[in-house]
Amino acid sequence: MKIQLFASLKDFFGKELDIDQSISSVESLRQFLETQNPQSASLLKSCRFAVKDEFVANDYLLTDHDIISVIPPSSGG
């Protein structure tokens, strides 16, 4: 699966991540990312996740071919 990261998340993970292992849900992905970079944990708790340009809930089931966007809290305006 491919992970797209935005704004301050890029400082932790870069702009894009390819993950070879299977991750079953959004919540598991959040935990996986926290394990990869523990300093990102508090930010990840405030992030939303999106697949195919739609926000998805924590229990959303992922497939290996999904492209998942991790959306930090907004800071526009």
Binding site: F6, A7, P73, S74, G77
Partner: peptide
Amino acid sequence: IKHETPIWKCEYYTNGEYSWGNN
């Protein structure tokens, strides 16, 4: 828009530093 819309600002300062700000 400021709370919900997925847009982010990065502040660049006159001393060359930057920070993703005001989430």
